[in-house]
């Protein structure tokens, strides 16, 4: 194979021009999907983290079991189970609903673990001081503990969000027309790898700044731990 053949197979300008409208639609869907599943997972995580502040063992153990259950199942398995399994239980779900349920359960568990660690990193004296100034338990949590907790685990939160955005690519498996799905469609029509290559480039351009930022934050965090 010559170098020109290689270029033709992976970086063909004509194919890219043909496939661009399809890829662009997929890119926009990936953005919309991320804008749905990131807040959804985050809300799930906040609920789990808040529940974990209750000291009762009747909350604690079921909570740990829940979090570990959904951290043990690969996200794709959860998604396929929801999408292909629920219709047998008489519940027909759209791809988007299936993705939303799967991500709520899976990424909610991850966000929950991160936020719990954040809340635990805030010294108990902060709550006591806040309560003694007359704040209610809820106010102390909302105005004093959570802001510090989120700041302490910010790199982990950003890192998890990056993983969630990357993970939206598994929605292609249930035929949700996001970027990877659209690229595969274009590839199977054109018999050319350029659309997939283009999708990879789009993902990279979109996410590289986040990776750079994280790598700086992580290095600083590790250096601070000497």
């Amino acid at each position: 194979m010559t170098f020109d053949d290689f270029l033709q197979a992976f970086f063909s300008w004509e194919i890219l021009e043909q496939a661009w409208p399809i890829l662009w639609a997929g890119f926009l869907n990936t953005l919309v999907l991320s804008a749905v599943v990131v807040p959804l997972g985050f809300i799930g995580g906040v609920i789990l983290a808040l529940l974990s502040t209750l000291r009762s063992r009747w909350v604690r153990w079921p909570l740990i079991a829940w979090v570990d259950l959904f951290r043990s199942l690969p996200p794709l398995v959860l998604l396929v189970f929801v999408y292909a399994g629920l219709p047998f239980a008489g519940l027909e779900v759209s791809p988007l609903t299936a993705v939303a349920i799967g991500f709520f359960l899976n990424t909610g568990a991850y966000y929950g673990e991160i936020l719990r660690a954040g809340i635990e990193s805030v010294p108990h004296g902060q709550t006591e001081a806040a309560r003694s100034t007359g704040l209610t338990a809820l106010q102390a949590l909302g105005h004093v503990v959570l802001p510090q907790a989120v700041r302490n685990v910010l790199p982990d939160l950003i890192s998890n969000t990056l993983e969630v955005v990357k993970l939206t690519s598994i929605a292609s498996v249930v035929a949700l027309p996001e970027l990877l799905f659209q690229a595969r469609q274009a590839q199977s029509v054109t018999y050319n790898a350029t659309p997939i290559m283009a999708a990879a480039v789009i993902y990279f351009v979109l996410l590289w700044p986040v990776v750079r930022l994280l790598s700086r934050l992580e290095n600083r965090q590790m250096a601070g731990r000497r």
């Binding site: 990357k166 690519s169 598994i170 990877l180 790898a193 290559m197 990279f204």
Partner: peptide, 24 residues
């Protein structure tokens, strides 16, 4: 390192499996 941290793993798998045959 940045490349493989930014790309979704499924995209890399699909590229290798469905893309490479285009290069023979």
């Amino acid at each position: 390192v940045d490349l493989f941290r930014a790309l979704p793993p499924l995209v890399v798998i699909v590229l290798l499996y469905f893309g490479l045959p285009a290069a023979g």
